[in-house]
């Protein structure tokens, strides 16, 4: 793993303070990271009201579970993003099944590839992951990205990509194995 950036260290320190019940540290941590976490929730839920509620859920958990943060296992940003993702996914799973042939759902599957220009401001961990993603077969890469950003289940992904469920599972699982090999190399 790359050396944590100074900012990452500052966030970890704040989170450690939050674990001790420091409300000021909590507010400061929120101020510094909530826009990114709100972005995560918005991207998955595509509904401002729901994203706001998921964000609230995530920060409520962050306050209560800060003692479980272990700076040796995860960066503060990974820990917080995971909370936000999990709250958003919980909400997605509570929604009623999306109609399988809803054309609006198909529109959501866009081939969103980041522009290289944006790379400079990204973390070293991100650039490594991007390099490994770039080695995947394009359809598989798109499936992994869509899965990560949308929080969709295998079933939903298969429908959106109009491939059999088994194919989708196979794409994603192969991609995950390949990513692990590439990242852990």
């Amino acid at each position: 793993m790359s050396t944590p950036t100074p900012d990452g260290e500052a966030l970890a320190r704040l989170l450690t303070q939050v674990a001790k019940g420091d409300e000021r540290a909590f507010e400061e941590l929120y101020r510094r990271t909530s826009a990114r976490l709100f972005g995560v929730c918005l991207r998955m839920l595509r509904d401002r009201g729901e994203a706001e509620e998921a964000l609230q859920d995530a920060w409520t958990s962050a306050w209560r579970r800060a003692t479980s943060f272990d700076a040796g296992k995860a960066s503060a940003m990974t820990w917080l993003s995971t909370l936000a993702r999990n709250k958003a996914i919980d909400r997605l799973r509570q929604r009623r099944e999306q109609p399988l042939d809803d054309p609006a759902m198909l529109d959501l599957l866009v081939d969103e590839e980041p522009t290289p220009a944006a790379d400079a401001q990204h973390s070293q961990d991100y650039r490594r992951l991007r390099d490994c993603l770039d080695q995947l077969e394009p359809r598989q890469r798109r499936s992994v990205r869509e899965a990560f950003f949308s929080g969709a289940t295998y079933n939903e992904l298969a429908v959106r990509c109009q491939v059999p469920l088994g194919t989708m599972k196979s794409w994603i699982r192969r991609s995950l194995l390949q990513l692990r090999t590439c990242l852990d190399a």
């Binding site: 793993m1 507010e27 929120y30 909530s34 826009a35 990114r36 709100f38 972005g39 995560v40 918005l42 991207r43 706001e52 964000l55 609230q56 920060w59 409520t60 306050w63 296992k73 995860a74 940003m77 990974t78 993003s81 995971t82 993702r85 980041p114 944006a118 990204h122 973390s123 961990d125 991100y126 490594r128 992951l129 993603l133 990205r145 990560f148 950003f149 990513l179 692990r180 990242l183 852990d184």
Partner: peptide, 26 residues
């Protein structure tokens, strides 16, 4: 796996939540 995959969240455009979200959390 979180350590491997979560950096992808870097791509997401940050969006400031409205101020009342913080008040609700608090």
């Amino acid at each position: 796996w979180q350590r491997r995959l979560l950096p992808l969240a870097d791509e997401i455009v940050p969006t400031e939540p409205p101020p009342y979200v913080w008040e609700r959390i608090r």
